[in-house]
């Protein structure tokens, strides 16, 4: 196609070009569906379908193995809100989140700032603090259990050696949840530290120079003027992701306390697990799941809100 296109009417001109462009595109469209097909099918089967399923299930009295089920409307939710265990579980979960999030975020930031404030042994510290993130939590939970052992544990041994009273950390109502929180902070700290380190590295050095020239010489002024505001987006992110992970706390509870003593460490996912997979009350467990889901999505929404407000240039 060359001169032929340049014949009489100028109006005819766009048409051949458009036809030429459209054809390969449609071919590619076909290929595209083939490429995304498996992913779409699996997504519907393993993600979107089950998500709808869990919501639907929460309105039924379905029990695993039962031959039939009935729609019972909001009855599961009514039962749940009337159940003391649910409220204990929700309160414990929130307590866990409220302790672990600030604990691991503040410590993670502190460690990151300390590491970044000098040059010596940076890689060593980063590795050490990150180690708990890598180690299988279940295995480490069992190690913690032994460290917290009332008689032979390291913690009580150390306490006794300085003359303080020993505790049955995981066996006493007052300390069981707190002990799990400590393990939670221990595990999450390194992850947050690494995210903060990445945030700190991406702050342009010139800003610190400018702050220095502008009269913000001290470490605190520089932190207020440059570090903290520029870490803003990272901080929001770290807080939200730690929050979401804390809402999912299950491993340590299941292996160390089974929710006890007397429900002192009962948390949402553990309650859901017991109802759904020990007592096979699928409908009721689904209702618990929906509550859990709402909490997690609410956190995500908060994050979206906060990040949208921050307009920074690269």
């Amino acid at each position: 196609m060359s001169d032929a296109v340049l014949t009489p009417s100028a109006l005819a001109l766009p048409r051949p070009a458009a036809v030429l462009r459209r054809r390969p595109l449609r071919l590619r469209g076909g290929a595209a569906y083939a490429l995304v097909g498996p992913a779409v099918v699996l997504m519907l089967l393993m993600l979107i379908g089950p998500l709808c399923g869990v919501i639907a299930l929460s309105f039924t009295d379905y029990q695993l193995g039962a031959p039939s089920f009935a729609w019972i409307g909001l009855a599961n939710y009514q039962d749940m809100f009337a159940d003391k265990t649910f409220w204990i579980s929700l309160t414990n979960t929130l307590t866990y989140v409220v302790v672990v999030v600030p604990g691991s975020v503040v410590l993670g930031l502190g460690v990151a700032l300390l590491i970044q404030s000098g040059t010596g042994l940076r890689a060593f510290y980063r590795t050490v603090y990150f180690l708990p993130v890598m180690a299988t939590l279940i295995a480490m939970a069992i190690v913690w259990e032994f460290m917290l052992h009332p008689q032979f544990g390291l913690v009580n041994g150390l306490l006794r050696s300085v003359g303080l009273p020993a505790h049955g950390w995981l066996q006493e109502r007052d300390t069981a949840l707190l002990s799990l929180c400590v393990i939670g902070v221990w595990q999450a700290l390194g992850f947050n530290m690494v995210l903060f380190l990445a945030g700190l590295v991406s702050i342009p050095k010139a800003l610190y120079d400018a702050a220095e020239i502008d009269g913000a010489g001290g470490a605190w002024s520089q932190f207020r003027l440059v570090t903290w505001p520029l870490l803003g987006p990272v901080t929001v992110f770290v807080v939200v992701i730690t929050g979401i992970r804390s809402f999912q706390v299950f491993d340590t509870v299941h292996v160390l306390t089974k929710g006890g003593p007397s429900k002192a460490t009962e948390v949402l996912i553990h309650t859901m697990y017991m109802e759904g997979f020990e007592f096979f009350r699928s409908g009721y467990a689904a209702a618990l799941t929906v509550v859990f889901l709402v909490c997690v999505l609410a956190l995500t929404l908060v994050k979206a809100r906060l990040t949208a407000r921050q307009v920074h240039y690269a």
Binding site: A206, D209, A210, G215, A216, P229, H312, Y313
Partner: peptide, 29 residues
């Protein structure tokens, strides 16, 4: 210290504080 030398500096990357408005940037020193 740099701030006590009473010099001003304009940087290659401008080094403006991205979270502050133009007014606040100029007002910092």
């Amino acid at each position: 210290r740099p701030s006590q030398r009473n010099l001003a500096m304009v940087f290659q990357s401008y080094a403006l504080y991205p979270h502050l408005s133009v007014f606040d940037n100029i007002a910092v020193p």
